[in-house]
Design a protein around this nucleic acid. Structure first.
Length: 553
RNA sequence: GCGCCCGUAGCUCAGUAGGAUAGAGCACCGGUUUCCGGGGCUGGGGGUCGCAGGUUCAAAUCCUGCCGGGCGCGCCA
């Protein structure tokens, strides 16, 4: 809605100041930090100063007069040496509330998905063990970013790349096979760098119970290991799917790395790069000229022993995505892979896509804290907390919310004690409490006055004369823009901030005003009307994050 | 050595496609409420935005150099 107003402002200004068209791109209509600077603020006077050879303040005063003619504003002020501050009118707020109640928990969302197709690939954990916290953070960030794209009007596809080829999977099979053999023969050697977790033993026991004859019947031990690999991988993948589903994350596409090799897609991609002149041979290996697109050295895709590198598979994978015709793709990766991006980007650029076609969001480490002490994790010894365990301990909503509190590219300290607190110190509790409180007020209204705010009703918002009510309405009006900004900038963590701020303004309102007053029923209705708008805005935010809008605490 | 990320209040962090007096939560101090040493409400103190230059009407934000911390730099996946 900011965009609408901005367009109107520009149209209005261009009537008398043709120079506006020259600075159009740099005009910023923003939400000022301080309430007294208005609901919106525009910087256009600074930009015009150079062209009109006048002081910003003078221009601002001229602009002020022109903008006062527009219907949106109740007041226009000049301040800060040339800012033009705009105060929205009651009529505008009335329209905002109407819109919220109409759009409900998709308040402000694009109605049509016509901005293009985006693919978001995330989690993509090796199916060699349970999901850990880093995967969980990636799952939340990827999922919420996908929700944001949907909100913005893109058609989104969520994808999980299954690393089911290569050494990891072989190692998995060897580990399971060893555990299987150890059941009858305890001194059977366990591979040096095998997977130690108990889940490997569980899989082995399962195989021992149901597939023992089959495994022992293989003539070649390698076949037995392959069988174990395949079985364990499928089983672990199922587990991963279940965990993610419980976490509210579902994928549209499960893409197998192995199939890239068996279906000839790797050869196809290499052939394509060859046509583009990106491929050459040196020292018995085949290389890609990634330096043509900014990488610091060329990279091998076929080793001198004739086998492919991981990079070859990844090029083929992205070539496949390219051919699927997405307008843009996003990869959510662990931050330790950041050094890998330039070479992948270089290969992808060779496809002939625009500079910003591929984006990567990096996920930094999650550290767990309990009683102020870090819980050290060691995957080797098997002593690490899985995503599932954390969810079981503090609940899905807290995990999601905490994973979203900080920019994904910064380290996150997860305080288990805080996540468990049932008080306003705990931000998840605090925001959910705001929603539950409104529900509770509505229940009371029905019980005490026989007036059910859950039903549709009309109200006169001109009765909302308190300062805090104006602040809340303004806040509601801005929410779609705040969400859109979070989505455009790939900063899903901003949603927690937006939600917290709204909850905070609501709690303040709740603590200072009575909603259920017998003596002034029309005021009661107006306030409940506002509460209903707040609740829908909260629901919109909760839905984007995947958090439950609880009705009672 | 090269590259990427981070450095903001005592702590954990927001804020960085330049914008007005740099924000929040916790902790700390005060007022108030409650049966309450807990909880709620409310007010307050607290900052050389790592350092030093530069660009600009305007820099936490952009540029350069340095300091400190993390990560990455394979014909590994």
């Amino acid at each position: 809605m900011k965009e609408e107003i901005k367009a109107e402002i520009i149209k209005q200004l261009e009537k008398d100041i043709p120079e506006v068209s020259q600075v159009k791109q740099k005009i910023k209509l923003e939400i000022p930090k301080e309430d007294r600077f208005g609901d919106l603020s525009i910087n256009v006077a600074f930009l015009l100063a150079r062209f009109l050879k006048k002081k910003p303040v003078e221009i601002a005063n001229q602009i002020k007069q022109m903008l006062e003619e527009l219907p949106y504003f109740s007041k226009v002020e000049v301040a800060g040496g040339g800012f033009v501050n705009l105060f929205l009118s009651k009529e505008y707020y009335r329209d905002v509330l109407k819109q919220i109640l109409k759009e409900k928990d998709r308040y402000g969302a694009a109605l049509k998905k016509n901005r293009g197709r985006i693919n978001v690939e995330f989690v993509s954990a090796n199916p060699t063990g349970p999901l850990h916290l880093g995967h969980g953070r990636g799952a939340v960030v990827g999922n919420v970013q996908s929700n944001l794209y949907d909100y913005l009007g893109y058609k989104v596809e969520r994808e999980f790349y299954i690393n089911d080829a290569g050494r990891q999977i072989k190692k998995l099979g060897e580990s399971v096979y060893a555990r299987f053999r150890q059941i009858d023969q305890p001194d059977y050697p366990f591979p040096e760098d095998g997977y130690h977790g108990d889940y490997i033993k569980e899989i082995a026991q399962h195989l021992y119970r149901y597939e023992k004859e089959k495994i022992l019947s293989f003539v070649d031990e390698k076949q037995a290991v392959d069988f174990c690999s395949e079985f364990a991988k499928e089983m672990l993948l199922e587990k991963i799917k279940e965990d993610l589903k419980e976490f509210g994350v579902e994928f549209d596409i499960w893409f197998s790395e192995k199939k890239l090799y068996t279906s000839g897609k790797v050869e196809e991609a290499i052939r394509f790069l060859k046509e583009k002149g990106m491929i050459y041979e040196k020292e018995g290996a085949v290389w890609v000229k990634t330096t043509l697109y900014g990488d610091d050295k060329d990279r091998v895709i076929i080793k001198s022993d004739g086998s492919y590198t991981y990079f070859a598979g990844d090029i083929a994978y992205h070539y496949d995505k390219f051919k699927r015709g997405y307008d843009s793709i996003v990869n959510v990766w662990g931050a330790d892979h950041h050094g890998y991006f330039p070479r992948l980007k270089a290969a992808v650029m060779a496809f002939g896509v625009p500079e910003d076609w591929i984006k990567v969001m990096f996920i930094q480490l999650v550290k767990l804290f309990r009683n102020g002490q870090e819980i050290k994790m060691s995957k080797r010894s098997g002593s690490f907390v899985t995503l599932k365990e954390l969810i079981e301990e503090v609940g899905k909503d807290a995990v999601i919310y905490f994973f979203l509190t900080k920019d994904s590219n910064t380290h996150l300290n997860f305080d288990i004690d805080l996540a468990l607190k049932k008080s306003s110190e705990n931000p998840v509790y605090y925001v959910q409490y705001a929603h539950a409180r409104i529900c509770s007020v509505f229940r009371e209204a029905k019980e005490r006055f026989g007036f059910d705010p859950e039903q549709d009703f009309e109200a006169d918002i001109n009765l909302l004369k308190e300062e805090q009510e104006r602040i809340l309405m303004k806040h509601l009006a801005m929410i779609p823009d705040l969400i859109k900004e979070a989505g455009e900038k790939q900063q899903p963590h901003k949603l927690t901030q937006i939600t917290y701020d709204l909850a905070s303004d609501f709690h303040y309102y709740y603590n200072h005003f009575k909603f259920l007053t017998k003596d002034d029923e029309s005021l009661m209705r107006a306030r409940l009307y506002l509460l209903k708008g707040i609740r829908e805005a909260l629901r919109t935010l909760f839905k984007l994050m995947g958090i439950t809008p609880v009705e009672r605490m």
